[in-house]
Design a protein around this nucleic acid. Structure first.
Length: 670
DNA sequence: TCCCGGTGTCATCTG
DNA sequence: TGCAGATGACACCGG
């Protein structure tokens, strides 16, 4: 079961197909049984590299959306061989095609018939056949294969039907110059049409490698089985086939399917150009975007996500560059260069450009572009670039954020927070710059941010960082002291510092960076008079004086804050201690009160007993005992004791008794 | 991931 | 009024 991915809806599919068919720039391999439609040449670059198996994981990575989803191939194609009942027998067809001088070998009878029709001038018939196939494909999957409808009016498939496309515009521009190499035409109209197709094809070849990258939307590509074609191929003229196969086999070395097949990658057969039978000697076309193909990662991932591109291309670049230099090796690029010298140049340039672009455009500012472009840049040179004495490794390497920092540094000369790039007078951001006393001291790169990625990538990024220090010497810093400002949060730098420096405070690092001849401790603890005299005695730059004052202010304030916090803590601790003491004292008082109440009760009892004892001994005038309920004892101030009727005593003591009761109740609560 | 304590710093107040 | 110190507030960091 094969599934077809409908071509993208910009008309490129059928257009390219028609071009291919008409002009043999690429060998058309149209197996209607399997409905293999060659994808647009633009797809060859990327998608043919992966093979066309839509079930393969590589397809899942396709950057091209599938607007119409998948459709079963056996539901899409028209009635294949019955498409044109006028087609002659197969053997005759092949002979006629060969007689026409078509520089490729049709693999199927339909191919041959199509070629025959075109070569014979019956472009409409061929377009109709193709259009039927394409329209069927489009309709079968319900996808908007606009190319089919655009390019095949009335079932024809006139590629000129999309004049608004940039591709067509470019083709028209290049048209006059390339009308000589044409397939012989018998019919004027067909000739003209083929000429246009040819022009467009060649326009595609030569003018749109990069431009199409931008304009190309997403394209879909499909895979097909070739078994039936191969069966038919057996019936063809064997020497021709073998010769063709020889050519193809050589070309397959540079075939798109092989380009990504870097060493170690296996070709499962689906990638093979044998599925497409592209005659690269004439039609590698150029539309194959070589530099992108080169940038394809070895795992056949062909995303064009810029992020991926920036992170991946370096190793492929190196590999492919080596391929370029070793042309005799059977690696794809070498073969390609052997066939297409101009591609070699193109590839070199594109490779260099893309490599540089992928690293970062900023590198152009510093790396000798010509060295790269001419391939003279070797590892030693690169390493020397990163070791140039007046570079600032410290500053640069402080930035651990690779490209982000690069962008920062490039877009602005303002002080970035990380202090890594751009002009920054922050001495802390220049630790190695100044710590060793000069810009460009061979200070070892101490930063731990060096990634684990690759040497080349690191070199590149380090170099970017290096050269964005702008060779700023301390004097330059001083001269810019007017606009100097420290990074907002330089503490973040600490993570990039060496252990030795990490132990230093920020002010210590700054003072060290500015070579201030006093320790931070001295600056802070020095009396005011000594401090002022010290400032006046030494020649210090404004930046140094400013830093010294800031250090002193911050140091003083830090000590003050520590003292303040210490005092605050002392106050808190004292208050807590006071609370504890007061609570203990309260408990003691409560215990004392309880003891007093207890003693009072004892005294009351004793008094009661004494009272009754006194009354029991008292007698009135008649010798009778005195009733204690009617009389009470009252002590006078002179010490005498009187027996007083209770009525008199009660009125005088009622208030006092109430008061005592009240006090007794309150005592009960406590 | 949130919380908490420690710390540095700045702005402002105070003596 | 200037200055050093005190303090509130905030942010950051590490546990």
């Amino acid at each position: 079961m094969k599934y077809l991915k409908p071509w993208r809806s910009d008309g490129g599919g059928l257009l390219h197909l028609t071009i291919l068919l008409s002009l043999a720039g690429l060998r058309l391999d149209l197996d209607l049984d399997l409905c293999l439609l060659l994808p647009p040449p633009t797809l060859l670059r990327d998608e043919l590299l992966l093979g066309c198996d839509p079930t393969s994981p590589a397809y899942a990575l396709s950057p091209y959306p599938a607007p119409g989803g998948w459709g079963r191939a056996d539901q899409l194609h028209p009635k294949g061989r019955e498409a044109d009942p006028a087609a002659p027998p197969e053997g005759q067809l092949l002979r006629e095609v060969r007689a026409l001088g078509v520089p490729f070998i049709p693999r199927t009878r339909v191919d041959a018939w199509l070629v025959h029709r075109v070569a014979a001038g019956d472009a409409d018939g061929a377009h109709g056949l193709l259009g039927a196939a394409a329209a069927s494909s489009a309709g079968g999957v319900g996808a908007g294969v606009d190319g089919g409808s655009q390019a095949a009016p009335g079932g024809g498939g006139d590629p000129r039907a999309s004049p608004s496309s940039p591709l067509a515009a470019r083709q028209e521009e290049k048209a006059p110059a390339e009308q000589t190499a044409r397939v012989p035409d018998a019919d004027g109209r067909a000739s003209e049409e083929n000429e246009v197709l040819r022009e467009r094809h060649e326009a595609v070849d030569h003018s749109s490698q990069h431009e199409e990258n931008e304009q190309r939307v997403s394209a879909q590509e499909e895979k097909s089985l070739q078994q039936k074609n191969e069966d038919e191929n057996k019936t063809a003229d064997k020497p021709d086939w073998e010769a063709e196969k020889t050519t193809e086999s050589r070309n397959e070395g540079i075939s798109l399917g092989d380009i990504p097949a870097l060493p170690g990658s296996s070709n499962d057969g689906m990638n093979s150009s044998a599925h497409y039978n592209v005659n690269f000697s004439q039609a590698i076309s150029h539309d194959v975007n070589l530099h992108e193909a080169m940038l394809l990662c070895p795992d056949n991932t062909f995303r064009r996500d810029p992020v991926v591109r920036t992170s991946q291309p370096q190793e492929p670049f190196l590999q492919l560059n080596s391929h370029t230099t070793n042309a005799e090796q059977s690696l794809p690029v070498a073969n390609l260069t052997a066939f297409l010298p101009f591609v070699d140049n193109q590839m070199r340039n594109l490779t260099s450009e893309d490599f540089l672009h992928d690293l970062n455009i900023n590198i152009f500012d510093e790396i000798n572009l010509m060295s790269l472009a001419t391939g003279d840049l070797d590892a030693m040179e690169v390493s020397q670039l990163f070791q140039e004495p007046d570079s600032d490794s410290g500053l640069s390497l402080n930035s651990s954020h690779n490209s982000t920092s690069i962008t920062k540094s490039n877009t602005s000369h303002s002080i970035c927070e990380e202090g890594a790039t751009g002009y920054s007078s922050d001495p802390e951001s220049l630790p190695h710059h100044n710590l060793e006393g000069a810009v460009g001291g061979n200070y070892p790169a101490p930063m731990g941010h060096r990634s684990d990625s690759g040497f080349c990538g690191d070199l590149a990024f380090q170099h970017v960082f290096h050269n964005h220090t702008y060779h700023l010497e301390p004097r330059a810093l001083e001269s810019n002291s007017e606009s100097f400002s420290w990074p907002e949060k330089p503490e973040k730098m600490s993570r990039y510092l060496s252990d030795t420096e990490r132990n230093l405070s920020r002010d210590e690092r700054r003072a060290k960076a500015l070579r201030i001849p006093f320790s931070v401790d001295e600056i802070v603890r020095m009396p005011v008079d000594s401090f002022n005299s010290m400032l006046s005695r030494h020649y210090l730059t404004d930046l140094q004086v400013s830093l010294i004052r800031d250090i002193r202010r911050r140091g003083k304030n830090k000590v003050a804050a520590q003292n303040c916090r210490r005092r605050k803590m002392d106050i808190i601790l004292n208050l807590e201690e006071d609370v504890c003491n007061l609570q203990a004292k309260k408990e003691t008082l409560k215990r004392e009160r309880a003891q007093c109440n207890k003693a009072i009760n004892i005294m009351k009892q004793k008094l009661h007993h004494l009272y009754h004892d006194v009354f029991s001994r008292l007698r009135d005038d008649e010798g009778r005992p005195v009733n204690p309920n009617q009389y009470a004892l009252q002590y006078s101030h002179d010490g005498s004791v009187l027996i007083v009727p209770k009525e008199l005593v009660t009125s005088g003591h009622k208030k006092e008794n109430r008061k005592r009761k009240r006090e007794g109740i309150e005592d009960g609560f406590h």
